[in-house]
Design a protein around this nucleic acid. Structure first.
Lengths: 199, 199
DNA sequence: CAAATGACAAAAAATGAATATTGTTTTTAT
DNA sequence: ATAAAAACAATATTCATTTTTTGTCATTTG
């Protein structure tokens, strides 16, 4: 029995996300999602080629909405100093992940699972984030806040790698300890010193 | 049937490691290890309180022998420059882990599993490694190669965290890509710049 | 015609009884 | 008295069976 509305990809993703939050990524079946939409499960295969593709689409949208977009807002904000902006950007990335692992555990588990498969979606997401870092690095170079001779895209990846312990889902268990903030503080001082160093 | 020799902890660890390499950490039972020693499995419980403790003891010894000791040899070597020594130390740590994941997959899997439980053994191992970094940082400060105002132990942990992507077992799948060396190269440049920076 | 359904086969997951393993206690041997 | 072996519950693992889930497709509906 079809709904009164046409069945869009977005509507399927909305339902999938809702069911996923309720049952968790392991216990959610395609039939469960179809039931929530009051359609037969076969219908979903007209919109997504496989359950895997559907899971990835849900994760991709979540990464875009919950991670990439809030971070890009920081870049728009035009901070006085590039180092301050980068500091805020990294702290925000870390806080988004930490908060998701605590307050949205099912979506976070979904994201962590998709990350393990090292799919193209994750690679693209990382490209997008390191692209944002690159903008801040270049802005800082122009303003004189940063000095570096590496290509900005490689340096951006180095900054992202260096902070992986604080935002990669594999390390989520280590984020609860009280010393995590202090540890990131030390790392930031070191990185800033490397970025701001006069030659 | 007891062996001619007395049953020592070391002999048990030797046998456990051997059996573990053959069957893998998931398929190895206490009975398998006892069989290799030609003793009854109950006997092993006089030496180790549980299978978990035995697994941890095997891992602890492996971490000491295969990771901590080779690295401490680098520190003894007294390189001309502290930055060169730290660079070598980090590259060696990374190479030990990479090589173990490829050439000693069962022990590496064991280590990765123990790491997930975040046991005291791992914390102690990390303390030991960051202690080694601390020595190099302090040596570099004395020689003038490094300049920093953070406490050396915190800075050592920052260096260790910053390089986690290249030595933490959760990231092993990412070590096969050809760009891994280049990526570490970028990160090292950034870290060195931060450590060597004049204020 | 476009879109959804529902029946279907293949693959994957859950079940449960049989088997093996773990960890403790008791017994045996020296 | 000391240390290994044997016996023994409590868990955990296997494995054959049943059930669910996935993905396809011919048919139906609007």
């Amino acid at each position: 029995m079809a709904n009164d509305q046409v069945l869009t990809k977005e509507a399927i993703l909305d339902a999938a996300e809702q069911v996923l939050r309720r049952y968790g990524p392991d216990k959610t079946s395609v039939v469960d999602i179809a039931k929530a939409l009051q359609v037969s499960h076969g219908t979903l295969y007209r919109h997504f080629p496989s359950k895997t593709a559907l899971r990835e689409a849900v994760t991709e949208r979540w990464l875009q909405q919950s991670v990439a977009e809030p971070l890009s807002a920081i870049i728009e904000k035009q901070h006085s100093d590039a180092d301050e902006a980068l500091h805020m950007w990294l702290k925000t990335l870390i806080e988004i992940k930490r908060s998701a692992s605590l307050n949205d555990p099912e979506m976070f588990a979904m994201y962590a699972a998709v990350t393990l498969d090292a799919t193209a979606i994750i690679a693209e997401h990382i490209d997008s984030l390191t692209g944002q870092i690159e903008v801040l690095l270049e802005r800082g170079k122009v303003s004189g806040a940063f000095r570096y001779d590496q290509p900005a895209d490689r340096l951006a990846r180095a900054v992202f790698s260096a902070t992986a312990k604080f935002h990669h889902p594999a390390h989520a268990a280590e984020w609860t300890g009280e010393s995590a903030d202090e540890e990131f503080g030390s790392l930031w001082k070191l990185l800033l010193s490397g970025l701001a160093s006069s030659k």
